[in-house]
């Protein structure tokens, strides 16, 4: 469900997520995120295999993103983001939530 791998040379960590990512396992997801955030300076999240998300997912990602930005670290998405996730982000009005500008925005290409 949560798989973390680290490219030590570039200090890029990739957290690959899969399956359901909803309130049922929100605590575990937060845990996994916290872990990954500690280890990597540049964190990438791969959501290609994710099947369901909800508001808790968006809150965790959004909060993590802001916190990392404050610390001078970065959070980005890698791989393809499934269309339903983009849609949920757009419908929930999170599109440029932490993305004050085009470079740091988490959900690039999605607008409210």
């Amino acid at each position: 469900m949560f798989h973390f791998s680290m490219d030590n040379a570039r200090s890029v960590g990739v957290l690959s997520l899969s399956g359901d990512l909803t309130i049922r396992n929100a605590a575990e997801f937060k845990e996994a995120m916290a872990n990954a955030m500690d280890q990597a300076n540049q964190l990438e999240i791969n959501m290609t295999e994710v099947e369901r998300i909800d508001l808790t997912t968006l809150q965790i990602l959004c909060s993590a993103h802001r916190t990392l930005l404050k610390k001078g670290k970065s959070l980005a998405l890698s791989g393809t983001v499934p269309a339903f996730i983009r849609e949920t982000v757009q419908q929930a009005g999170f599109a440029d939530c932490a993305g004050e500008n085009e470079t740091s925005g988490l959900w690039k290409g999605v607008t409210n």
Binding site: I23, A26, K30, L55, L58, Q59, R66, T67, K70, F94
Partner: peptide, 25 residues
């Protein structure tokens, strides 16, 4: 068209994953 109001969303380390912090306009 919805815009999420996330001003109450705390710092990641203070975040309770099972609490709703979001409001909408």
């Amino acid at each position: 068209r919805a815009v999420a109001i996330t001003e109450k969303l705390p710092d990641f380390y203070d975040l309770d994953a099972e609490v709703c912090y979001t409001g909408w306009e």
